[in-house]
Simulated scan of single mutants.
Amino acid sequence: MLKKILPVFIVVLIASCGDDDDSNLEIVPPRLLADQIIEDDAAIQEYLATHFYELQTDPVFGGQRVVIDTIAGDNAGKDPMINDANLGTKVVNVSSNQVNLVEEENDIPHTLYYIIAREGEGISPTVADSTLLKYEGYLLNRTKFDAVSDFVWQELPNFLRGYANGIAELTSGTSEGLVQNGDGTSYYNDSGIGIIIMPSGLGYFLASPSTAIPSYSPLVFTVEVGNIIENTDTDNDGVPSILEDLNGNGYLFDDNTDSESELSAGVFARADFQDTDDDDDGIPTRTEISDAEGNIIFPYPGSENGGVPDYLNPDVQRDPNDN
C-alpha cells in the first residue's frame, strides 16, 4: 500500500571505505532540492518523450485502466506523452523543512506533470479531501512498486504531495456511473482516469519507505478517481480541512495556530486540520463556530471585516451556550 507521510527526520548517508581494519566513515549529506529538481525534470522529460499510454478494458473488474509502454519495436509509431493534448503541468513550491532536511531551502519550484486520460463526470477533490480511488505506482524504468486492485479510501493530506496535487487535477465519477458486477466487484463508467508524474521532491526524496524505491526517484502513478467526500473535515471540528490550509500552499502540516502552546505543554504538535481545538484555549473549535443549537455560523464568528476568527484567537473563549 502507498505509504502515509509520517514526521521523520532524515539522517545522512554513511559509506565506509578503506582497506584495513580501521574504517573511515564518509558522511554524505542529502542532496539539495534545487539541484535534484534539475536532474529529475530532465529524466521526466525524457520519459514523456519515450513513452505512450492507452486506455484498455480492465480484464478483471471491467471499466477502463491506463496502460503505459515504451515507444519501441511494435510500438515505434505511437505518439509520445509529451505531445498529448491532455498533458498538463502544475508548479508546487517545496521547502526543506517539508521533507525534513536540515539545509535550509525555501519555496523551490517543482513541476508536476499530469495527463487526464478520461475526464470524470463528477467533481474534483482538493488536496485535503478523502478520495475513493485505484492506483498503480511505477518508477521511470516501469518497475511497479505498489498497486491496489480495487477502490480504497485515502485522505490525501497524509500521502505524497505530488500524488495529492495530481489527483486534485482529476474529477471523480458519480453514483449513477457505479456498476456492480455479479461477483461483488464494481467499477465506474464515468470516473476520472489519469497519470501523475512527479519529481522526487514531491515524492519520497531521500526518505524512501522501501528498497523498491531508490532515494531521489521520480514517480509515476496511474489513478482512477471514483468518489470524493467533498469538504472533508478530518478532525470533525466543523471547519473543512482545506480551509485549515491557512497559508494556502497546499501543505496542511505547516498550519498550526497553537504550536507554541503545544510545545510548551510538551504534547505532540498537531496541525490545525488534525486539531479539535485550533487555538488551544480550552474551547473546542466546533463550539466556537456554532450557535446555541449547534449550527455552524459562516462567516465564522470574529472573522467579520477581516478579523481573526474566534476559533483561532486564544484570547477569545467563545461559548454560545454561555451567551
Results as ranks from 00 to 15, higher is better:
F298V: 01
I123C: 02
D280I: 00
G88K: 12
V102T: 13
L2G: 03
P320V: 11
A212L: 15
L55T: 03
D235R: 01
E304R: 02
D79G: 05
A72T: 14
D281Q: 13
T50L: 10
P320Y: 11
V12L: 04
D84Y: 04
A49L: 10
I115Y: 02
N97G: 00
Y216C: 13
E46K: 12
D190L: 09
S264Q: 13
D183I: 11
Q317S: 15
T287P: 10
E293G: 11
A128R: 03
I14N: 02
N83R: 14
F268I: 08
A117Y: 01
E260S: 10
I108C: 01
G294V: 13
Y216P: 13
D21F: 08
M1D: 06
L32C: 01
Y216T: 11
Y311D: 00
A42Q: 13
A72W: 11
N106S: 12
S290W: 10
N141E: 15
G173R: 07
Y138H: 10
D310G: 01
V99D: 03
P240M: 06
D84K: 07
V12M: 08
G162T: 08
I195V: 10
N295A: 11
S175Y: 05
Y114D: 00
G248F: 04
I193Q: 07
T57S: 09
G77W: 03
A76M: 07
E260I: 08
M81Y: 07
Y47C: 06
S172Q: 07
L101N: 03
S130A: 14
V8R: 14
P218T: 12
D79W: 00
D183K: 11
P80L: 02
V92I: 15
V267G: 02
G250R: 06
S149D: 15
G266S: 11
P109R: 05
L6D: 04
K90W: 08
V308F: 01
S210Q: 09
N247T: 08
F268Q: 09
E244Y: 08
V94F: 06
D258F: 07
G194M: 05
